[in-house]
């Protein structure tokens, strides 16, 4: 039986870096290798999803002293250049998840990170379902496909610990502070259900700027909303304790 060492995850989301923000976030990442083993970013890296903004983000994250993993958010999709932005980030050495997973060797342990943008639909008992107009079926079906992909990716991973990275929220606890009326556009319980089924130690998300940092899935997995306006700091550090 292997003994796990502590794993320190630096996390932030919703950086919304415009072209005027060049250099601003990099400055805040100075010394990150002293504080964390890996950096995870929960999407909305850009403001409008332009390629120029994507290049700004890539330069901010290029050649960091710790591995950087990210997903994209709805803002990064706005200009229909999400694939190009992902390519620019990958060229800068950033791991970009798109409903798949990656294994990172952190000290003696293998960390599996699964995730993607996620999507909305609402939360159990108060959510949209795949019924009626094609547009509604497509909306809910999109989230369901994403949740299924995460479930499969988590189950297939041969790793010591698993973390899920999303833009949209899997639970409503971390939306507290947002207007109730927009919850269905902020996340979906299908994401939490998939992760509860397959297992993980932590789920990180962004998107809900007025939400709250801490929540739990129905299965007891810790959820953290790491959107910068929620954190109020450059990034959070979560330590998964060794066994």
């Amino acid at each position: 039986m292997s003994i796990l060492t502590d794993l320190r995850i630096a996390a932030a989301g919703d950086l919304h870096l415009g072209e005027d923000a060049r250099g601003s976030y990099r400055e805040r990442l100075k010394g990150i290798e002293e504080r964390a083993d890996v950096l995870m970013l929960a999407g909305d890296l850009t403001r409008h999803g332009t390629l120029e903004e994507g290049r700004v983000v890539a330069d901010e994250l290029r050649d960091l002293p710790v591995p950087a993993v990210t997903v994209l958010g709805n803002h990064d999709y706005h200009s229909d250049l999400q694939h190009e932005i992902a390519a620019v980030l990958r060229d800068a050495g950033v791991i970009v998840l798109d409903d798949d997973g990656v294994v990172i060797q952190c000290g003696d342990s293998k960390l599996g990170v699964v995730g993607g943008k996620g999507f909305g639909g609402g939360f159990a008992g108060k959510c949209a379902s795949e019924f009626g107009e094609r547009e509604i079926k497509d909306f809910v079906g999109h989230t369901r496909q994403i949740a299924d992909a995460w479930r499969v990716a988590l189950k297939e991973m041969q790793v010591d610990r698993r973390v899920v990275l999303s833009h949209y929220s899997p639970v409503k606890e971390t939306l507290e502070g947002e207007p109730l009326e927009i919850y269905p556009f902020l996340g979906s319980y299908l994401l939490a259900e998939a992760v509860d089924t397959a297992g993980a130690e932590l789920i990180l998300h962004g998107h809900a700027h007025k939400g709250s940092e801490k929540g739990l899935t129905p299965g007891g997995i810790r959820v953290r909303n790491v959107a910068l306006p929620v954190l109020g700091r450059a990034y959070a550090v979560y330590c998964l304790n060794g066994g």
């Binding site: 990150i32 504080r35 130690e201 932590l202 910068l228 954190l231 109020g232 700091r233 450059a234 979560y238």
Partner: peptide
């Protein structure tokens, strides 16, 4: 958003 702030142990 300044500095990183305090770590949380899970």
């Amino acid at each position: 958003y300044g500095e990183p702030g305090e770590d949380e142990h899970l």
